[in-house]
Design a binder for these strands. Structure first.
Length: 405
DNA sequence: CTTCCACGGGAACACTGGGGTG
DNA sequence: CACCCCAGTGTTCCCGTGGAAG
């Protein structure tokens, strides 16, 4: 009798080690990042000599190897510190998760064995706790703030306090590394914070197609079994990703999903066709995921745009039209509608997420609007929206709106 | 030059979920 | 226990502003 899994295991002829293609994997070797690695190591080496390293600001678009590089250098630095017996610790904080001053310091304080609740206290008390916690001994602490741009505005107090903390410490030294994919985010910062955080700057340029190929080849060697990749697969993945401002994460995803598709269809090789399918699948998944996690009100707004395009047979709508449809939807659902002001914000958010396209146009005598159009296929969005039980009722709103027209 | 509509910045507010103190 | 303090979030309110048609 065949075991249920027997076939499934035997089928795994494509991958040797799929983990290598995941974005969390940090390779031993980072191609085309020598310069940045050396630069970073050079600045941080001060920590090993008992000095305070300069604060560093790292720029680069998504998937240019910023996080991987920093994590790699961190690990090396910590290893070396351990060998030399100097107290040197690097703390990684993701600004998307800890996006306010309070949360950053509460997290930091906890690392230094202080008991601080995640909410409830005045912020300066949390800050003092952290300070007291670090200063208990002579050490060097480097705080890595990934996605610092998420901290600008809400949490820039954290940056301000971190940048001047050294003057209040007697034993320990603290410096920070900010990682940002928004090149303009320092504009939002206080002048003092800006100059302090940007003592050193390192730029991570996007990879071009050839460089992406190098990265992919190196990983593919470990990830795939021998000669399962058609020759054109890697160049094609690289080309796709190069169009997306040289995003290596995208390229690796593409390669992994291509392999998965090949495996599932029991193809002995990964082909160009698989890559094309993978590209479509990834994009479709992204849209579904984004729509699914949208707050209810945004879903209603998005749905209003869908309703309009079905009812009117055109593509672009003014914000007035969308808002009216939104109000109708709300009363249909028995909900209080939000104000127009708020809805313009929701529309902008949908725009940033890439679900819709919104451009401000001035119609002269007839004022000013945003022209709004859907920028993804309706078939991707509608089914997901109707999955939400609170929106189910809107499936048949069309009849009602015709009556009220 | 006026006029119009909605954009979008900023303040203010309500509410939530957690503190500490008497 | 009751009570007030605090950070954080989502919202409303108020309002100055852009820019081409008229």
């Amino acid at each position: 009798m065949d075991n249920l899994f027997e076939d499934l295991i035997k089928r795994g002829r494509i991958f040797a080690n799929k983990e290598v293609l995941r974005p969390t994997y940090i390779p031993e070797n980072l191609p085309h990042r020598k310069e940045q690695i050396n630069n970073l190591a050079d600045i941080l080496s001060a920590a090993l000599k008992g000095e305070t390293p300069s604060n560093i600001l790292i720029y680069g678009k998504t998937g240019t190897g910023k996080t991987a590089t920093v994590k790699y250098v961190s690990k090396e630095l910590e290893d070396m510190g351990r060998k030399m017996g100097s107290k040197c610790s690097l703390i990684y904080i993701n600004g998307e998760v800890f996006d306010t001053q309070y949360r950053v310091f509460a997290y930091l304080a906890r690392i230094f064995n202080k008991r601080v609740p995640m909410i409830g206290w005045p912020t300066d008390m949390v800050y003092s706790e952290f300070k007291a916690g670090v200063d208990t001994e002579n050490r060097c602490v480097i705080v890595i703030l990934d996605e610092v741009d998420k901290l600008a505005g809400k949490g820039d107090g954290a940056l301000y306090n971190l940048s001047r903390i050294n003057s209040e410490l007697n034993n320990a030294k603290v410096s920070m590394i900010g990682i940002s994919n928004d090149l303009t985010f320092t504009d939002l910062l206080d002048q003092r914070v800006r100059s302090s955080l940007g003592e050193e700057e390192i730029i991570f340029p996007p990879y071009n197609a050839e460089q992406l190929q190098d990265i992919l080849s190196e990983r593919a060697e470990i990830a795939f079994n021998e000669s399962v990749l058609e020759d054109s697969v890697i160049p094609l993945c690289a080309a796709f990703a190069a169009q997306e401002h040289g995003d290596a994460r995208r390229a690796l995803d593409l390669l992994r999903v291509s392999g998965e598709i090949a495996e599932r269809t029991e193809s002995p090789k990964v082909t160009e066709e698989h890559v094309r399918q993978a590209s479509e699948r990834i994009e479709a998944n992204r849209i579904v995921e984004v729509v699914k996690t949208l707050p209810l009100q945004s879903k209603i707004v998005l749905n209003s745009i869908l309703l309009l395009s079905r009812e009117r047979n055109k593509k672009r709508f003014s914000s007035g039209e969308v808002y009216n449809m939104y109000r109708r939807s709300c009363s249909f659902l028995g909900m209080e509608p939000l104000t127009q002001r708020r809805v313009t914000d929701l529309v902008s958010e949908l725009d940033i997420l890439g679900l819709i396209n919104a451009v401000i146009v001035s119609k002269g005598r007839y004022g000013r609007t945003k022209e709004i159009s859907l920028s993804v296929p309706e078939s991707c969005v509608l089914p997901v929206l109707l999955e939400d039980y609170k929106l189910k009722a809107l499936a048949n709103i069309k009849v009602k709106t015709q009556m009220t027209l």
